[in-house]
């Protein structure tokens, strides 16, 4: 395999996993919030806080990917 082909395969694999991790981190945050609400009986608050943290984690993944493209 040529070096150029290898690099494009690597980039394709990395960015195709980006969308999945952005979506999944939001739902992890939501699930943790719902679980904590049921556990401690503080109905809406934990869900909102952890949903916000999950959205922040998803956008942090995008930020890391953009930082990675600047390096080349």
């Amino acid at each position: 395999m040529k070096r150029e082909t290898k690099r494009s395969i690597r980039e394709l694999a990395y960015y195709s996993s980006l969308g999945l991790s952005v979506a999944l981190s939001i739902f992890i945050g939501l699930a943790v919030g719902v679980y904590l609400d049921r556990r401690f009986d503080t109905t809406p608050w934990c869900t909102f806080i952890f949903l916000g943290l999950g959205i922040a984690a998803g956008y942090r993944n995008i930020g890391l990917a953009i930082k990675k493209t600047r390096k080349y």
Partner: peptide, 21 residues
């Protein structure tokens, strides 16, 4: 606390995205 929680959620998302794909 905010950054630590965000990092932990990001690493959990790695596990889930690897296994679910």
């Amino acid at each position: 606390p905010i950054i630590l929680l965000i990092e932990i959620i990001g690493h959990l998302a790695r596990i889930l995205s690897l296994s679910f794909r």
